[in-house]
Simulated assay, not measured.
Amino acid sequence: MPKDEGPARGAPRPGSAATKRRPVMTPAMGLLLSLYVGSLLAWILARALCGDRWVVALTLSQMGPWLFLPSLFFAPWVLLGRQPLGAILLAVPAGLFLWYYGPMLLPPPAAPEPAVPLTVVTFNLQATNPDVAALVRVLETSAADVAALQEVHGWQHSALSAALAGRYPHRWRDEAGGLAVYSVHPIVERQVYDVPAPEGAEPPWPIQSAVLDVRGTPVHVLNAHLAQTGIMPLLGRLDAEPMQTFAAARVAQIDRIGQAIQERALPAIVACDGNMTDLTSAYAGIDANLQDAWRERGWGLGHTLLVPRSFEVASPVNLAVLRIDYLFFSSGIRVNRVRVIPGDSGSDHRPVWAEFDLAGAPGAASHP
């Protein structure tokens, strides 16, 4: 009877780790990944062809960097399963995320000392915010030369004016738009730009325009609260029309900002609660002619919208989940530093502060 010699030398033993089947992606997981990547590619195409007019593309754009979060769900199955096709598919959202947000994750280079400095903070106070003491504290600690404020109720303006009169001797509130500009520099020209309403819509919030005399250099500061296009109208009424209407209103506001800058022909800074992420075509419209201070000098994703407070839900913990507050600037101005101001102000937004250098502006003179 032949002798059983067992497995050949060097062969793995049955049940050993070497004979265990490596994990693979299930067909269902592969299908989900394919659908996700296909949806991203369809979103890119729809955004290029329709912009924010198609409500599905707009909703996805409003997700900002969270649009790429499912990649983290698929990554373990792709990597552990060693699936070449899965890796190729996963490279699409990974590459898109790095394309849109990669530069923001790198620390900005050191900036030179500004020759003609101007610090600006943009801040949505939230009109129902009763914590005036916290608002005063934020504005005082920001030490900004100019505060561009949105959602400023009349009683908030009165309380802030009384508390900050020494800091900001020049203050102007537009009652209709709930916008206010507080400045250490004189406001030499004031104008409110009404925005034509899209067909079938109420007029959007106006644009506040102030020309400041910054040590002899005129600077055009525009303050805006752009129309909101959340998904709640869509979910509440199963109707895309409200989102499309508000999106059109926001584009009209951005167009009016561009016209105002051209009319003044001065170095300009635009401060706004944009109610949009930087993936929307509305953002692309304003970014085509102006520079985004955060993308130039910010570090990180720069999120400013706080939840659940933005849904008017009281909570001891609020997380910043989207970047929707912006400081843009025109040619002749350089941004040196920019940051999101942390802390609890009682608002559902965090302020964005930036230091600009007006040295390249016409007529600018270095400060002593």
Rank of each mutant, 00 (worst) to 15 (best):
G302Q: 03
Q291I: 06
L49C: 12
A8F: 00
A115Q: 14
G216E: 11
G154C: 04
D278N: 12
V146A: 06
L41D: 07
N129Y: 05
G6M: 08
A227L: 08
E296G: 10
M243I: 14
S39L: 14
L118T: 04
S158M: 08
P233S: 11
R339D: 12
V321C: 10
D287C: 09
I286L: 14
T19V: 15
V55N: 02
L106W: 07
D131F: 11
M276C: 08
A46N: 13
R9T: 03
N124R: 00
L118R: 03
M1L: 14
E140S: 14
Q126H: 10
I207Y: 02
M243E: 07
V192F: 02
I341D: 07
P186S: 05
T19Q: 15
A176R: 15
Y36F: 14
I257S: 01
R137Y: 07
D194A: 11
A17N: 12
G363D: 09
P308V: 13
A163T: 04
A18F: 13
N124P: 02
H303P: 02
Q228C: 14
W205R: 15
R295K: 15
E5V: 13
A201G: 12
R53E: 15
R53N: 13
A180E: 08
D344Q: 09
A176D: 13
A354R: 02
S183H: 02
S16Y: 10
